[in-house]
Amino acid sequence: MSPLQKIAVGFDGSGDAEAAVRWAFELARQVGADVVVVHAVGLLEYAANRGAAVELEQTVERLTREAGIDPARVHWHVGDGDPCSVLIRAVFAPVAADLLVVGSRGQGAHAGLLLGSTSHELAEHATVPVVIVPTGREGQ
């Protein structure tokens, strides 16, 4: 049995996040794992656009078709909070992931800066392995 059973990948709709989702799908196909695509609803998204998560879910469905992964292996999870906290919580039930995947810039975070980098924060605080997918590296 593969040690990887459930991969959680952060998704905010950005190009970096799409690259991370594609990478997670490819890994999942190879090892036979499930993927939970995780979206964090922050203060501003809750206030401004309560339909945003629905649109993002449709994007994930498209990415699922493009990747040729079994749709039954792909799950969608929306959590309240900032991207880093929501991904850290994805290690616990109900998601219970054993690997976390994010794009190199994370959800809406600043490139090249220690502060405000979701990927940096995750690497520091996560209790399972973290994969940071560099921008433009999907499919390589």
């Binding site: 991207p83 975070a109 405000g116």
Partner: peptide
Amino acid sequence: AFCQAGGGQLDPD
């Protein structure tokens, strides 16, 4: 240091 450099977005909120 972040503020001194002009600031920016720290997370989506």
